[in-house]
Nucleic acid binder design. Sequence first.
DNA 1: AATTTGCGCAGCCGATTGGCTTCACATATA
DNA 2: TATATGTGAAGCCAATCGGCTGCGCAAATT
Lengths: 106, 106
Amino acid sequence: MRRDIFQAIADPTRRAILVLVAVQAMTPNAIAEHFDIKRQSISKHLRILSECDLLVPRQEGREIFYELKIDKMKEIDTWLDQFRKIMEESFKQLDEVLFTLKNKKK
Amino acid sequence: MRRDIFQAIADPTRRAILVLVAVQAMTPNAIAEHFDIKRQSISKHLRILSECDLLVPRQEGREIFYELKIDKMKEIDTWLDQFRKIMEESFKQLDEVLFTLKNKKK
DNA sequence: AATTTGCGCAGCCGATTGGCTTCACATATA
DNA sequence: TATATGTGAAGCCAATCGGCTGCGCAAATT
């Protein structure tokens, strides 16, 4: 059972759930109302999202409110950082090339 | 056949390929050397990454160099923006609450 | 106490995934 | 021209995915 954050957000329903819950913590039933999917299937998604720490359940009587753990989202951002860094490097090298060319012109 | 960027980066091999290619455009054979996977399987991954515009193939004789299309990566960032916005709103509301509390104290 | 409500779990099932092997084909190279 | 090399496409297969239904259980309501 792979259970990383990237596999979690691969599913469009799960991404939509995250957006919903981001605005306001919600119960499985309330979430299910927004989809053409049985409540149990939503539950399965919530389990996956919880297992990789994107959501956190908070019990309140017989209801369970699922809340977004925004910090976990930052992991995606961190992954993107690699590319920002690499691209920055590329531009730096490009700048050097351009600088060299400019100097040669003189 | 789902083919969106989130499904593309769900696979760890594909994420590694993206990082490799980000540094420098590479041929399928060169990429395959970095994995314990047959070249043909890598080809399949390259096809998927190309189909959702994360990579671009550049033919050079009988070799094909796959290059990262960094712009496409920004789509992930754009998706994350939703959450940044929502969180910003939450903090704004929290600030208001704190402000009200402070005033009540007086 | 009986019923309703909110929920998760287990198990079924067709579709998809991500490996693999075998092949065909075009471009170097001998 | 014959051979070696770089590549993608097709098809196989076990594992996983994402729906579904049918439970059981605890909390709330009657």
